[in-house]
Design a protein around this nucleic acid. Sequence first.
RNA 1: GCGGGGAUGCCGGAAUUGGCAGACGGGACCGCCUGAAAAGCGGUUGAGACGAGUUCUCGUACGGGUUCGAAUCCCGUUCCCCGCA
Length: 310
Amino acid sequence: MDKPVVLLTGPTASGKSALALALASRLESAGGAVIINADSMQVYRELRILTARPSAADESLVPHRLYGMRPADSPWSVAAFRDAAAREIADAEGRGSIPVLVGGTGLYLKGLLDGIAAIPPIPDAIREAARARLHRGGPEALHRDLAAHDPESAATLRPTDSQRLTRAWEVLEATGRSLSSWQREAAAPVVPRERCLCYVVETERPALYDRIDRRFRKMIEGGAVDEVEALLAQGLAADLPVMRAVGVPQVAAFLRAEIDRETMIAQGSQATRNLAKRQLTWARNQMSKWDRIAQDSEIAVEGIFAKIRQ
RNA sequence: GCGGGGAUGCCGGAAUUGGCAGACGGGACCGCCUGAAAAGCGGUUGAGACGAGUUCUCGUACGGGUUCGAAUCCCGUUCCCCGCA
């Protein structure tokens, strides 16, 4: 029988990475494991501290893939992840290792299990034109324009949802087809669900929020400000995904002397808690069938290990 | 002690200067999610009651008063801030 693929998720600061590391170490005797990043921000090379990426020491213990391999000016995406993860999973299995995908980006994991519409890449010029249109007329105007040319997609989007409206517009412009029609087509899963062992790390919310607060402060004390300063020194476009990583806007405001250090820490912690809240909502509703595992690594690791040996 | 200013949901703060208190923002909670997802977006949120909704009662530090009507005006009390002693 095929070896399983392990998927591990949970809110930020829930201890996913440590759990993955413990599990991968435990799997040494069973052919080994490869940890594959399913997080939208830990891919960016420039942000190790702020994204709580596994340390170099951790990476030396067990093979880690898709971490810090993307320069800040090259946007990652769910489609890029799907393709890269498919390669990494196949590669790991080719060597008899068990792929362990870890990350808090629910959409990426969904893309892996359910697939994603086969929309071709959109040329940069069209993407930029769509954004320019948004900035010129605002989301309501974009919604009206979209409704005139693609009523089906427009009907599914709120006039305030600037991001999805822009996406629908650029897809229509580039492909001549409605985003809705693309999304109606059956998408191909990367891994069949039957082969996956899917886990959500369970957390107590007050304790999680507390851990988030302490961790963000520690990030700042541990060099996050320098990290962002170096990133900003590259003079990249402000709308790149990496610029929206939790902490980057807050540290940037501090560097511009708009807020003081404590305000930066308070706002960064707050943004992280807001993220965790959204991740919890996603897990509760989109991953309701996934197994829940305790934060305690020993128990969790043994539970997953036993399941793999079956 | 004297003079001046202030006290409004969990928080910051609105309220045409006597006319629907709590706008707007934040937080919290609930939810949406197909190539930016650590993103983007929606809902609820003063308290209580019942027949459960276009319902009723209470509610702007506390106690009185004026008025058809008070967060707003008057008197007293408490606390906070600023200035002077």
